[in-house]
Amino acid sequence: MTPLPVSIGGVVASLVLLTIVFELIRSRRLRERYALLWLVTGVVMLVLSAWRDALDTFAGWAGVTGYPPAVLFAVGLFFIIVVLLHYSTVISKLADENAILAQRLALLEAELRERAGRGR
């Protein structure tokens, strides 16, 4: 059985995470699109922390016999990796778009300078 303090700590930590994410969305510092993964992470961690029987059952399935909260760590780690990978794709996309914008800007500037030179 999961020790009670661990469950309480897990619940508090999940609630803090959910609150922070909610606040970031509310104040428009985080787009919903990028907040979804964090919200899912928070909710899953919250459920697994609060619903102690479920955590024990999952631990049993996973063959974790000694210390059920290890499953909490595993699940948390999994979500963090997913979020980070997601961000890597977002950064790659931004970098691509950034390069295209820089190229367009440079080409437009060159054309503009040319026209200004001709108009004189």
């Binding site: 390069a99 820089a102 060159a110």
Partner: peptide
């Protein structure tokens, strides 16, 4: 003619 990139894109860009 000069096309000036606003920042360094690397040779490919």
């Amino acid at each position: 003619r000069v096309v000036r990139l606003p920042f360094n894109l690397g040779i490919g860009g």
